[in-house]
């Protein structure tokens, strides 16, 4: 299997990057190629990075409560640029009641506080297999 490439991005103004860095390292240790963007990335920047890098996945970490607007913009931007086939998953503090809404607009999965990194890793591997990417 080729090395899968993941963009891990911090969106909005949120500075909490512990989770983003932990998941980046866990994915890398599990054999993924990881590009961590650093803080304060706009949806446009995240999508551009993903397209330029030929990413297989985009992971967005957000704990500030701005997840709905950020998710919507990333999905829209991907569509505008003809890259809607790049799956987007999210992590951070996201209320249960928003998860269904996020999935409805096209976010593939949401990983809340306390999720083991192995769960995210397995999810991405299975997603790849199932969708024959």
């Amino acid at each position: 299997m080729r090395k899968l490439k993941v963009i891990v991005a911090k969106a909005g103004l949120d500075g909490h990057d512990r989770g983003a860095k932990v998941i980046s390292r866990a994915l890398r240790d599990a054999g993924f190629e990881v590009i961590y963007t650093g803080l304060r990335q706009s949806p446009e920047q995240i999508v551009s990075t993903a397209i330029d890098e030929g990413a297989d996945f985009i992971g967005v970490s957000i704990l500030s409560g701005a997840h709905m607007i950020v998710a919507k913009k990333i999905i829209e931007n991907l569509a505008e640029r003809g890259a809607e086939d790049i799956p987007v998953f999210m992590g951070g503090i996201i209320p249960e009641s928003d998860i269904a809404k996020l999935k409805k607009i096209g976010i593939k999965a949401v990983f809340g506080p306390g999720t083991p990194t192995s769960e995210t890793i397995n999810y991405l591997r299975n997603y790849y297999k199932k969708n024959d990417m």
Partner: peptide, 22 residues
């Protein structure tokens, strides 16, 4: 909130979705 902490007014484009949140 984060816009106040990072020096953006509530009507700045950087502030979208963040006003009054944290």
């Amino acid at each position: 909130d984060l816009p106040t902490q990072i020096g953006y007014d509530s009507d700045d484009s950087h502030s979208e979705g963040e006003v009054g949140k944290v």
